[in-house]
Amino acid sequence: MDMSEDLVTAKQALRAEIRDRRRVMPQHERDEATAKLTEHLKNLVAARGVKRLSCYLATPSEPETRPFLSWAYDNGIEVLLPVSRDDGLLDWAIANDSPDENVGLYGIPEPTGELIGPIAINDVDLIIVPASAVDKKGVRMGWGRGYFDKTLGSMGKRPPVYALVFDSEYVDSLPQEVHDQPVTGVVTPSALITF
């Protein structure tokens, strides 16, 4: 096995462990994490004077984003939500106050709004991305499909990028491949960290 195969295998094992841990997380812990994450995200948006951002609709096992999205909508902050495409790129839709959602590729929740194309993300002040884990150097490990790495890697001028994870998923170090895009910071229930 060469080094890149070792990296891929290590990442797959780590993702499986994180999925298992997330699956058995008690609901009261999840609710508490959601409340704390929402506060940190509101503080981040306020501190940076953000008017337009991109975020995502969390899957049932991910740190929940919907209370934050509702707050952003209520406060006049425009939010772009990703829609996965077959070609590995992300389209975007502007979040609205509708509770309706579509089921996208891979069973991921997606917005129902009108699609505005991949380059719309170039006009946001802040990007919030999902992650399975983030390390202390800003290395983000996603779920292996590469959508956000491609998107971030293609941006000429990138705004701050923060990943959302549970506390146990902010780790000392992660395996890193060439295409992995670093993040500016991480938001966990107990902390908002900028690297």
Rank of each mutant, 00 (worst) to 15 (best):
R158E: 05
S173L: 15
P159Q: 10
L174C: 06
H179S: 00
V187L: 03
K157I: 07
S173C: 14
Y147P: 03
G142R: 05
D172W: 13
D180P: 01
V139E: 13
V187M: 13
V165W: 00
F148I: 03
T184L: 07
F166H: 06
F166R: 12
R158M: 03
W143E: 15
D172T: 15
Q176G: 14
P160W: 00
D149N: 08
K150V: 10
V161W: 06
K150R: 14
W143Q: 15
D167G: 04
D149I: 02
V183F: 02
G156W: 07
Y162M: 03
L192E: 12
V178I: 13
Q181G: 11
T184M: 10
S168C: 07
M155T: 07
R158Y: 01
S173E: 15
G144A: 00
V165Y: 00
G156D: 13
S173P: 07
S190E: 05
L152F: 11
V183K: 00
P182L: 13
P175S: 09
M155L: 04
F166W: 06
Y170P: 03
P159K: 03
E177M: 15
G146M: 06
G146R: 07
G185P: 08
Y170R: 04
V187S: 04
I193P: 01
K157W: 07
G185T: 05
A191T: 12
F148C: 01
P182T: 12
P175C: 09
Q181N: 08
G156H: 08
D180M: 00
M155N: 03
E169S: 11
K150C: 11
D180W: 06
S168P: 08
G142A: 12
Q176Y: 15
T188C: 06
V161S: 09
R158G: 01
V178M: 15
G156L: 04
V187T: 09
T188R: 04
R158Q: 09
E169N: 02
E169A: 14
F166S: 02
T188D: 01
Y147K: 08
V178Q: 15
Q181C: 15
L174N: 14
V186P: 06
D149P: 06
V165T: 06
W143N: 15
Y170Q: 13
L152S: 01
G146T: 06
Q176T: 15
Y162W: 04
T151Y: 08
V139D: 14
R145A: 11
M155G: 02
